[in-house]
């Protein structure tokens, strides 16, 4: 499905490589969490896949197409097949929720049609369906900057799914959310990926969340993969390998605690108490 081979990235003017000879393979429908300390290269790796960041070396192949060899126009075509969800939502704040969703179809619609907001009815129908699915029914004409953090991330997820992508890239989806909303968002992403059999690579700095929602974990440190395996194998030795020394056991109790609370609030349509705009 997705194959990354010998991927490296050097940012000009920095001594160490952000990514150093990274290789990994992703099967259809697989959900991977990418964990590692800040600066380990998680964001860079994700952005190299759709070439928002231009890799220095290596090959990336998505369903038989070599993304790293594409020229500008073909690259835009390829990007339509890859959905992306961002850390701080990256919505266009002054546009409505509907417009933000429809922007997921820009790769398929010509400039003038997009300027005049004349999207095909099928796109609009799909947008309404997705809004309902992520629990934002009736929000279509609200301006994005009036939404809470959790609601904005739901819009961000729906925008990515508007593309009907073959691969979902998710960059720290919960970093600016409170713990409870973070869980709801991760659960939503997990459910949607399972429903659509959509493979996803998710950057997460929150290890308990990663362990709960992602069957496979990849640990990055200093731009290299130091762990790649099923979540069961992720023990304190591995965590120390990824993050360095820390008393990993002491956090375990707290996790069980908010699990119990969380189940009361399951389902996507719960009103968020995220941060105010």
């Amino acid at each position: 499905m997705l194959e990354i081979e010998g991927l490296s990235k050097h940012y000009p003017g920095t001594a160490a490589a952000a990514l150093d000879n990274v290789s990994l393979q992703l099967e259809g429908g697989e959900i991977i969490a990418l964990i590692g300390p800040s600066g380990a290269g998680k964001s860079t790796l994700i952005r190299c896949i759709n070439r928002l960041v231009e890799p220095t070396a290596g090959r990336i192949v998505l369903a038989g197409e070599e993304l790293t060899a594409l020229r500008a126009r073909e690259l835009r075509r390829a990007r339509r097949r890859i959905g992306m969800v961002f850390q701080e939502f990256a919505l266009v704040e002054r546009l409505s929720v509907m417009e933000n969703l429809l922007s997921g179809r820009l790769g398929y619609v010509g400039l003038w049609r997009s300027v005049l907001r004349r999207f095909p009815q099928s796109d609009i129908t799909r947008a309404f369906e997705l809004l309902e699915r992520v629990g934002l029914e009736g929000y279509a004409d609200r301006r994005a900057d009036t939404l809470s953090g959790g609601q904005r991330q739901r819009v961000g997820i729906a925008r990515a799914l508007m593309q009907a992508p073959e691969l979902l890239l998710v960059d720290e989806p919960t970093a600016s959310l409170d713990p409870r909303t973070a869980r709801q968002i991760m659960r939503l992403i997990h459910e949607l990926c399972t429903e659509h059999k959509l493979p996803a690579i998710i950057n997460l700095h929150d290890v308990p969340l990663a362990m709960r929602f992602c069957p496979r974990i990849i640990g990055l440190r200093g731009g290299r993969i130091v762990f790649d395996g099923p979540v069961k194998q992720l023990d304190t030795t591995v965590l120390t390998q990824i993050y360095g020394d820390e008393d990993w056991a002491s956090m375990a109790g707290e996790q069980a605690d908010d699990d119990a609370q969380d189940d009361v609030a399951s389902g996507a349509a719960v009103v968020d108490r995220g941060r105010a705009p």
Binding site: N50, L52, R76, R77, A78, R79, R80, I82, M84, F86, E88, F89, A90, L91, V92, E93, L95, S103, G104, R105, L106, G107, Y108, L111, S114, V115, G156, R159, Q163, L169
Partner: peptide, 22 residues
């Protein structure tokens, strides 16, 4: 804010669409 630009680019939008939408 450059993040929306990145987001529009990531959907496969062209340069002109990035300008108009983001």
């Amino acid at each position: 804010d450059t993040r929306p630009l990145e987001a529009i680019r990531a959907t496969g939008g062209s340069w002109a669409q990035v300008i108009h939408w983001a």
